[in-house]
Amino acid sequence: MFNNNEPLAQFYDRFLGRVAIGLFIVAMGLGIDGIGYFVEPDVAAMLKYVRTALAIVLMILVLPVFLKLLFLRFRNKKDCQEPESFVTEVYKHASVHGFSVVMLMLIAAQVVLGLESDALPTEFYIKTILATGFLAVSISFFIQMYKSEDDDFASEDEDAL
C-alpha cells in the first residue's frame, strides 16, 4: 500500500512539508471565504467553486501522507515521530510565528473594532484571523526551508569534492 523503502525520518520531514502546504491552502480557502463578503453574489458563488477545488487539492496532497503516518504508527514504528530534526525545528519556529501573529491580530481586533464590530459577522473576523495565522505558519516555514536550501547545496558541493 505504501512505499516502505523511504527512511522514516525522511518521510516525517516530507510529512511536515505537506502539512505546511496544507496550512497554506486552508489559509487561501479561509481568505476566499472572507472575500466572499465583499463581492457580488454571483462572484461569491463562483468563489465557492474555487474553494471546493482547493479542498480537493488539499485532500490529494495531505491525505496520502497523513494516512501513511497513521499506518506507520499503527505498526508501532514510533521512530516516525522523530522529534529531533532540522525540519521539526523549523516547523516549531513557524508555529510560534503563527501563534504570535494570531495573538497580535486578536489584540488589534479588540482595539480597532471596539463597539463597531457589527458591520460584518463575527465569522468573518474569526476566519480572517485564522487565515492570517495559518498563512504566517506556512510562509515562515517556506522561508526558513528556502534559506536552508543554500546550505544544502553548499554541503552537497563540498561533499562531491
Binding site: P7, A9, S85, V87, D152
Partner: peptide, 18 residues
C-alpha cells in the same frame, strides 16, 4: 542519516552549523 535514524537534511544542516 540512515545509519543514525535522521533525515539527510538534518545531517546537512548540522554540518554547515545551521
Amino acid at each position: 542519516a540512515n545509519a543514525i535514524g535522521v533525515s539527510r537534511k538534518t545531517i546537512s544542516t548540522i554540518e554547515v552549523g545551521r
